[in-house]
């Protein structure tokens, strides 16, 4: 039976893991390699890392961090942040990433997803979607939620599937960072409309939130703070899910 994936996410600035609330009030938490190794050893099903500054001059440092993490883990690694052209994808794959997450660049240039999935295969192309409610509609935002687009969430998700995305990483800007649980409504809706796997992101603060995430039919559940602050270990989350009859890898 296919297990639900528990995915810790490392937001990275200058080779340090950071955490901010809704991308503000950013705090430094530590060495990403140590975090990644700990998570891989303790049963994380996959690791996600994002270059959240994605500035041109810091790119080399980020690539070194990707290489260093790929060396110490033996589970899949998804990397995102600042991917704007085909060449960025190749560079990250060569640095040891297994999947590349593309967000703003997909909105600005949807054909990038087509080209990338033809060149590297859909299995390594993840489209990250930052959804938000606006005038009673769910829309797509970019640049870390700061900028609204004219795209509605479901149409965009379907389009990205049609363009060759192998997976969607869906973050609700309405629930991210505030630890009150996943955006169940948004995730259920999107899972109903696409047939590619969806990773749910944004809002985990309590153990039961993982169950709620699973109930949206998402195939992966992503969280950051609760793991980085050691509020919960990966093992604790998985044992809890198992006790609640949810299939996990132990």
């Amino acid at each position: 039976m296919l297990k639900v994936r528990i995915i810790p996410c490392l937001d990275i600035i200058k080779n340090k893991v950071v955490k901010g609330v809704k991308f503000k009030n950013i705090k430094t938490l530590g060495d990403p390699v140590l975090f990644a190794k700990k998570y891989s050893d303790s049963g994380a099903d996959e690791i996600c890392m994002l270059d959240i500054t994605a500035s041109h001059e810091k790119r080399k440092t980020f690539l070194k961090t990707v290489e260093a993490i790929a060396k110490v883990i033996d589970i899949p690694l998804t990397v995102g942040g600042g991917v704007s052209q085909l060449n960025d994808i190749t560079t990250l794959l060569n640095a040891g990433a297994d999947k590349i997450s593309i967000n703003t660049a997909a909105v600005l240039n949807p054909n990038l997803i087509k080209k990338a999935s033809i060149k590297h295969g859909s299995q390594c192309i993840v489209v990250a979607i930052d959804g938000k409610r606006h005038n009673k509609k769910m829309i797509v935002t970019i640049k870390g939620g700061r900028e609204k687009t004219d795209k509605t969430l479901i149409n965009w998700a379907k389009k990205m599937q049609a363009f060759g995305a192998g997976e969607l990483l869906v973050t609700s800007m309405d629930t991210d960072g505030v630890q009150k649980g996943f955006d169940k409504e948004m995730l259920k809706l999107i899972n109903k409309e696409v047939t590619i796997p969806v990773i749910a992101s944004g809002g985990v603060g309590k153990l039961r939130h993982f169950i709620e995430g699973y109930e949206t039919n998402s195939s992966g559940l992503l969280a950051a703070s609760v793991f980085h602050t050691s509020k919960y270990s990966i093992t604790k989350v998985k044992n809890y899910l198992k006790r609640n009859k949810i299939p996990v890898r132990l």
Partner: peptide
């Protein structure tokens, strides 16, 4: 029909 594709993740 309606199966999530690719089959992605950990399976036994």
């Amino acid at each position: 029909k309606k199966l999530t594709i690719p089959h992605m993740g950990w399976n036994s």
